[in-house]
Amino acid sequence: MMKQEDRNDGISRRGFLKRAGLLGAALCVNPVLEKATAAERVLTGQGQVVRDIPAGMAAVRELRTLGNGTAAFRVSAMGFGCMGLNHHRSSSPDEAACIRLVREAIERGVTLFDTAESYGYHKNEILTGKALKGYTDRVFVSSKFGHKFVNGVQVKTEEDSTPANIRRVCENSLRNLGVETLGIFYQHRSDPNTPIEVVAETCAELMKEGKILHWGMCEVNTDTIRRAHRVCPVKAIQSEYHFMHRTVEENGVLAACEELGIGFVPYSPLNRGFLTGAINEYTRFDTTNDNRQTLPRFQPEAIRANTRIVEVLNAFGRTRGITAAQVALAWLMNKRAFIVPIPGTTKLSHLEENLRACDIRFTAEEMTEIENAVAAIPVVGSRYDALQESKIQK
């Protein structure tokens, strides 16, 4: 394995935030910008806002590109998923501790933070906004629209990507997060009643108005990606992707992203914590704030069977001085240069562990070895229940 080298290239963005619509957004193409972005200067050592990252510190020292051409979007090679700070992950630290952790991630080079309207219905966005206050010139924060809510309660059998709802969610997200512009605005789940072309057109308008820099979609198929991309270039696709769920390799989504120059952002890259080895059949999840207790794959019998996969990761990592979590994250980052995983955590030690995966390089032989070893073990249990699975495009 080889350690990665720091990169000194940079592309700009900050100054564009209010001018997005005035500089060609009608074509959904951002202009080539002249100065290094504040977010990128943190990594490249340019500009006055730089925070030197000590050589031995766990940090992100590489930029990756989502999209291509003049619309290229440069972000840290690993992002941070904010959902678990206070939503769906059992007990959470107090607000002050969450804020400290997010800011520590920023100091360690993370420039992409991910949240959504539906994570506690504004709750996670508001917390993320508090954590990013004073740092928004150095980072990008992304959110999501598309779930249907009535009086703050999600209607789980329906989705809503009508233009009116997209705009409503956008305004709420901007207010909750305390930013002028969202980095990426994702459609959380497809809406069968709203053509994706209409969704793309609405996002193009929001780009023109300077309210979003880029847009993306979650858990969609290749046909939807191509239709949307023809209307307004898609910056990133966000789908579940890890050793225990590799569907995007089989259904053509990953290949389509590579062909079209679209970034790929895997959510739950550690399978909701399972691939860290910290969960076993005796683990009990908070019934009031943890969706894992409802998922087939997190039932005791499934956990018991799937632990064999974690054992394989541990065995592979042990001879290389890395943990199971680092094997899982490094494998993703070695798959494609346009993949930017967004693991989340509430602990500084886990943040450090995750970030060190950015320095790991596997040879082609090592990639084949670990993939074959994991593939030999059947995964037990579905990742979602029937209703949630029905919302995933096949």
Rank of each mutant, 00 (worst) to 15 (best):
E352D: 13
L351C: 15
L351Y: 09
T323M: 05
M333S: 08
F338S: 15
A337S: 12
A315G: 01
K335W: 11
G344R: 01
G321W: 12
V327F: 08
E353G: 09
K335I: 07
Q326D: 06
G321Q: 04
A337I: 14
K335V: 05
F316K: 03
L313H: 00
A330H: 06
R308F: 13
T346K: 05
L313V: 11
T346L: 04
A315C: 02
T345A: 13
R336E: 14
L348H: 06
N354S: 14
L351I: 04
N334S: 11
E353C: 08
L329G: 03
A337W: 09
F316W: 02
K335S: 14
V327D: 03
V312W: 01
F298C: 01
N334M: 06
V312S: 03
K335T: 05
T319C: 07
L332N: 13
A328R: 10
A305K: 00
I342L: 15
P300Y: 02
L332A: 07
K347T: 10
K347N: 08
A325V: 13
T345E: 08
S349D: 09
W331H: 14
L348K: 09
R308W: 09
G321T: 06
N314R: 07
L329E: 14
N306C: 13
A302Y: 00
Q326W: 13
T323A: 07
R304A: 15
H350F: 07
T346C: 15
A337H: 11
F316L: 02
I322W: 12
N314I: 09
M333P: 08
R297H: 04
I322G: 09
L351F: 13
L332F: 07
A337Q: 14
A315H: 02
F338Q: 04
V327S: 03
T323K: 11
A328Y: 09
P300A: 01
V310D: 13
F338L: 13
N354H: 13
S349Q: 14
A305T: 00
V340Y: 10
V312M: 06
L329M: 07
Q326F: 07
P343V: 11
L332S: 04
L332G: 02
K335E: 10
F298P: 00
G317I: 00
G317K: 05
K335M: 10
A328W: 13
R356A: 07
A315D: 05
Q299K: 03
M333C: 09
F316V: 03
E353M: 06
R336Q: 13
M333F: 03
F298G: 13
F298S: 06
A305E: 05
I339W: 11
N306W: 00
T345M: 15
F298W: 09
I309D: 07
R356N: 14
N314G: 10
R320T: 02
V327A: 10
A325N: 10
N334H: 15
E301G: 00
T346V: 11
I342A: 08
E352A: 04
L351S: 09
